Simulated assay, not measured.
Amino acid sequence: MQIQLQQLVPVPLRDKLEQRKSDIWNTSVTFNKGEWVKIKAPSGTGKTTLVHTLYKLRDDYEGAVSWGGKSLRNYRPAETAALRQQTVSIIFQDMRLFPNLTARENIELKRVLTAPPYYEATVIDAMAEKLQVAHVLNQRAGLCSYGEQQRIAIIRALVQPFEWLVMDEPFSHLDHNNAGKAAELIATECTKRKAGFILTDLDEDTHFAYTRNLLL
Rank of each mutant, 00 (worst) to 15 (best):
T53N: 08
G44S: 06
A128P: 11
C144R: 07
T27M: 00
R58Y: 01
W36G: 05
R84W: 05
E169G: 11
M95P: 01
L5S: 04
L101W: 10
E184V: 10
K16A: 14
V136I: 15
L97W: 10
T114G: 09
Y119K: 07
L199A: 05
R156S: 01
P116E: 01
K70H: 01
A209W: 06
N106K: 00
A78M: 09
W67L: 03
G69T: 13
G142V: 10
Q93F: 13
T87E: 15
V112Q: 04
Q6S: 15
T114V: 15
A128R: 00
L5F: 10
D23Q: 08
L202Y: 05
V133E: 04
D15F: 06
F98A: 10
A153F: 09
Q4A: 12
H135F: 10
Q6H: 14
S66C: 13
E204D: 15
T53F: 11
G46T: 07
L165Q: 09
Q4W: 00
N213E: 14
V9C: 15
T53G: 12
T48I: 11
D60M: 03
T206V: 08
L174M: 11
A128L: 07
E184N: 13
V159H: 07
I198G: 08
V29P: 00
H176A: 15
Y146K: 12
G34Q: 07
F171S: 08
V11G: 00
V11C: 04
R14P: 02
I3Q: 00
I152S: 00
R20S: 09
L137W: 00
Q160Y: 02
A183F: 05
E105N: 07
E120Y: 00
Q160L: 06
L185Y: 01
D15H: 13
D201L: 09
Q85A: 12
P12A: 04
K110F: 11
C144Q: 06
P12F: 11
M167T: 04
L13H: 07
I155D: 02
